[in-house]
């Protein structure tokens, strides 16, 4: 059991952090929501009701979509774009999808390679891009989820103020939707760019997110 935990410590710790932060968000979110309800002469809702509310759903999903967009973009951008000296980039000579030999596919697959790396055709094509396909799908689903939950919220607000409701497509055209979306995107893009640039000159000993401490600044893509 202890060995199992150690072998999965990275995913276990982040899973625990995620759950703890989500619980914290839900507790604070319910209180904020109820405060607002009372200020507007409405009634508060229970914690369990809040967990399945559009208010909580849109707050969760607007952050999810931007995180998955960030990684999806980073995964695909680093195939083609480089930053000289960065740990997050591959060397200038490797730009593109790389050779079958280097990618260990088809006849170059090894004994223990995944079976989808061995086959030819659509199966391999899909497997070669499976990470971006899944990350982009999660992004799109979360963004759609954000739009429908925030739309419900928006209309509840409209009704409360005696204004008319809008359709889902109408909501996509409102500044509310784009402000919620872009405020998350801007921070993700800045963070990705920062990682690409900071890892040229800064180091974290022992981290695969950094070059080795003694690696020269102009050395590109060599995790320590």
């Amino acid at each position: 059991m202890r060995l199992w935990a150690r072998h999965n410590s990275l995913s276990l710790v982040f899973l625990a952090l995620f759950i703890a932060a989500l619980i914290g968000q839900s507790i604070a979110g319910q209180r904020a929501f109820n405060e607002q309800q009372l200020q507007h002469g409405g009634e508060g809702i229970s914690y369990t009701r809040y967990l399945v509310s559009s208010h909580f759903g849109s707050a969760v999903l607007e952050n999810w979509q931007s995180e998955y967009l960030q990684f999806a973009l980073f995964i695909v951008a680093t195939v083609w774009l480089i930053q000289r000296g960065s740990n997050e980039s591959k060397p200038p000579g490797d730009v593109g999808r790389e050779s079958d030999h280097k990618q260990l596919v088809g006849p170059h697959a090894q004994r223990n390679s995944p079976s989808w790396a061995r086959v030819e055709g659509l199966g391999r094509r899909l497997y070669e891009n499976s990470l971006i396909i899944v990350m982009a799908t999660i992004f799109l689903a979360a963004w759609f989820g954000q739009s429908v939950t925030a739309w419900t919220e928006y209309n509840a607000d409209q009704r409360e103020h005696g204004a008319s409701s809008v359709s889902w497509l109408g909501y996509l055209d409102r500044p509310d939707f784009w402000e919620k979306t872009l405020q998350n995107w801007q921070s993700e893009f800045l963070a990705v760019g920062t990682m690409a640039v900071f890892t040229i000159y800064l180091r974290q000993r022992g981290s695969p997110e950094s070059k080795p401490v003694g690696a020269p600044h102009d050395q590109t893509g060599t995790s320590g």
Partner: peptide, 30 residues
Amino acid sequence: VTQMRTMFAVYVVLIAAGLVLYITVGLAHL
């Protein structure tokens, strides 16, 4: 291999459950 599969499955199930739940919540008011 089993342990890695377990972690993979936990993350997939968690993400899928969250997405399905809140898309359903959003669409429930249609």
